[in-house]
Simulated scan of single mutants.
Amino acid sequence: MTAPSPARIGIVTVSDRASRGEYEDRGGPAIHAYLAEVLTSPWEAVSRVIPDEQATIEATLIELCDHAGCSLVITTGGTGPARRDVTPEATEAVAEKLMPGFGELMRQVSLQKVPTAILSRQTAVIRGRTLIVNLPGQPKAIRECLDAVFPAIPYCLDLIEAAYLTTDESKIVAFRPKK
């Protein structure tokens, strides 16, 4: 019996400055480190650092979902109210289904830490057999948000017939209904 192929997970940093090399990308590496810590199933990252341009974000999400075979795409950055923050608009533009509970939970958790979390517009959507989750840009907020929503991600991937992910239960307990 052959081992299952590794799940492909897209990690997209949306940042004008990081994409130009003027600023060190800390968000993408924070997502990668989190996944390396909690996942026990084989996976591989497909990473991108792109500018805050809606057309570029849409094209990158489509490429990762439809061509690169990613079951999960996690973005960081571009979720605030600033004029150039268009990650949620780009994500919703490529969506087949909206998953508003992810954003609601992430904001609820973040509001316990900082009152400006209400300004964040994180969201999640389904495109084909891919779950796309938008996260804020700060590594601390990335961890807090992933801690909140990750227990539901493996089962969501099961439901959309994507990769099967398992977690280190001492770090994150993935919810799956008992059969």
Results as ranks from 00 to 15, higher is better:
residue 20 R to T: 14
residue 19 S to Y: 03
residue 56 T to A: 12
residue 139 P to F: 06
residue 171 K to Q: 15
residue 78 G to V: 10
residue 36 A to P: 14
residue 158 D to L: 11
residue 55 A to D: 10
residue 155 Y to F: 02
residue 3 A to D: 14
residue 30 A to N: 07
residue 64 L to Q: 01
residue 71 S to F: 02
residue 76 T to Y: 06
residue 19 S to V: 00
residue 32 H to P: 12
residue 149 V to K: 04
residue 49 V to Q: 07
residue 123 T to L: 12
residue 138 Q to D: 14
residue 83 R to K: 15
residue 3 A to M: 14
residue 137 G to D: 09
residue 117 A to Q: 14
residue 72 L to A: 06
residue 6 P to E: 06
residue 82 A to P: 11
residue 105 L to V: 09
residue 112 Q to V: 15
residue 6 P to N: 14
residue 167 T to F: 07
residue 14 V to N: 00
residue 12 V to K: 03
residue 39 L to Q: 03
residue 64 L to T: 00
residue 51 P to N: 03
residue 112 Q to L: 15
residue 102 F to W: 10
residue 151 P to D: 02
residue 141 A to C: 08
residue 56 T to M: 12
residue 29 P to Q: 03
residue 130 T to A: 08
residue 16 D to S: 08
residue 57 I to Q: 00
residue 26 R to Q: 08
residue 109 V to T: 10
residue 47 S to M: 13
residue 12 V to G: 00
residue 1 M to G: 13
residue 27 G to A: 02
residue 150 F to M: 06
residue 167 T to I: 01
residue 145 C to E: 13
residue 22 E to M: 06
residue 30 A to C: 11
residue 90 A to I: 02
residue 52 D to V: 03
residue 27 G to N: 04
residue 95 A to I: 03
residue 58 E to P: 00
residue 155 Y to S: 06
residue 54 Q to P: 09
residue 21 G to S: 08
residue 101 G to K: 02
residue 149 V to S: 05
residue 76 T to G: 05
residue 55 A to W: 12
residue 4 P to H: 10
residue 84 R to D: 15
residue 170 S to Y: 15
residue 35 L to K: 01
residue 3 A to I: 11
residue 174 A to H: 04
residue 137 G to Y: 06
residue 63 E to F: 14
residue 90 A to S: 06
